Simulated scan of single mutants.
Amino acid sequence: MLTNKQKRFLQKKAHHLKPIFQIGKSGIHDKMIGEIDSALEARELIKINLLQNTLEDVNDAGLQLAEGTGAELVQIIGGTIILYKESKENKQIEIPKA
């Protein structure tokens, strides 16, 4: 579980990132969760964009993706979800201690 200080740190790190996944009208499915999990292992911090034609609620989608990948939900802004998961083999981000 991330503290508020750690979330703010990750939000600053994610500010310049471009979303690498988009959720459209097909919604969230197992294959997408697997791909997002792989991306989290490679990058640790990612943004996901919900398109206007999606039937998913952004808050529900964020919680579903975080739970499905074992990641931490850092922030939801508009239609953008920011997820963080510490990489096992490719650690890049050093999070400040609580």
Rank of each mutant, 00 (worst) to 15 (best):
F9A: 02
K31A: 14
T69L: 05
Q22G: 12
P19D: 07
I95S: 05
E94C: 11
A39K: 05
G24N: 08
R8K: 15
H29I: 13
T54V: 13
I76M: 03
T54L: 14
P96H: 08
K13P: 09
D30V: 14
G24R: 08
N90P: 00
D30C: 05
S38N: 10
A61V: 12
K5F: 14
I81F: 00
V74Q: 11
L45A: 06
K91H: 12
L73Q: 06
G62E: 12
K97Q: 08
A39C: 06
D30Q: 11
A14C: 14
A66E: 04
K88P: 00
T69R: 03
L45E: 04
I81R: 00
I76F: 04
E67F: 10
N59E: 12
N4C: 10
S38M: 15
N90Q: 13
T3G: 01
Q64G: 01
G27N: 09
I23D: 00
A39V: 05
Q75V: 08
S26G: 09
K12M: 15
E44S: 03
I23E: 02
H16P: 07
S26D: 11
L73F: 12
K91E: 13
F21T: 11
K25V: 01
E94S: 10
K7N: 07
L40S: 00
D30N: 14
N59F: 09
F9S: 02
I93N: 08
T69W: 04
G70A: 09
I36P: 01
E94H: 10
Q64T: 14
E86D: 07
G70H: 04
P96R: 10
A14T: 03
I77C: 05
L73P: 09
H15Q: 15
L55S: 12
I46F: 10
E86Y: 00
